[in-house]
Design a protein around this nucleic acid. Sequence first.
DNA 1: CAGCATCCCAGGGGATACTG
DNA 2: CAGTATCCCCTGGGATGCTG
Lengths: 127, 127
Amino acid sequence: METEKRNQIATEVLSNPRNQQEEVQALQDTLYVLGGKWKLPIINSICNGNKRFRDIERSIPGITTRMLSKELKEMTANQLIKRTVTAETPVIVEYTSTEYCRSFGDIILEMIRWGKSHRKRLKGSAD
Amino acid sequence: METEKRNQIATEVLSNPRNQQEEVQALQDTLYVLGGKWKLPIINSICNGNKRFRDIERSIPGITTRMLSKELKEMTANQLIKRTVTAETPVIVEYTSTEYCRSFGDIILEMIRWGKSHRKRLKGSAD
DNA sequence: CAGCATCCCAGGGGATACTG
DNA sequence: CAGTATCCCCTGGGATGCTG
């Protein structure tokens, strides 16, 4: 194996230390926005067309109403999603994704792809 | 705006409910492996060629020795990185990425890209 | 259905100090 | 340099129950 050859994620960009600082910051920014266990699954769910509270809830294994409620509120405040109330006798609330929200699409796709590729490893090997 | 047109991240795949279950699971798997504040920055750092403890530490703003130590140990156990001891008078330890580790490359790239694009928004708007 | 309120706990994670 | 050890706090997040 070539010890010389540095492990690099990308090409020239990352080899520049000056750039690396930027990269790290950018990465941490993203991690900050996406922090927590549920934001990405929620975004994913809504982007997939789920609009109603219960629908979203059911589409995400393991989430509780409390968490969904909290995140939804926070994400609405952060312009990630839009909350719309339609009827009011039996209240109908709908959540939809904003452009901002959809900007996570590629990240989510990559993560789904990764998850699929490595599913066996998660089960196969002892922790 | 077309209410008909579902917000979709991808094309045909996601429109199938059967598939969606898989996607969610895959997403959550990935989130599980990558959980926490530091794993991705650490992976990124090591993949960028940082090998020594101090170097990695310095390359990640905000991380503490404790956290780095903990994560490094865990990630070594999980085959994400490899730990090699060279000299022993002044102990020299080097961390290098495994193939498995590098499989996160695309995710990291996407997140860096996102972070760069949305930097202004993070500062511009009040939380 | 669409949530809010409460209770409660594990553990993620920071600060600081110490060792080989 | 390369960590380990403690102390300690906060909050993410689960369970459960209640309201409009």
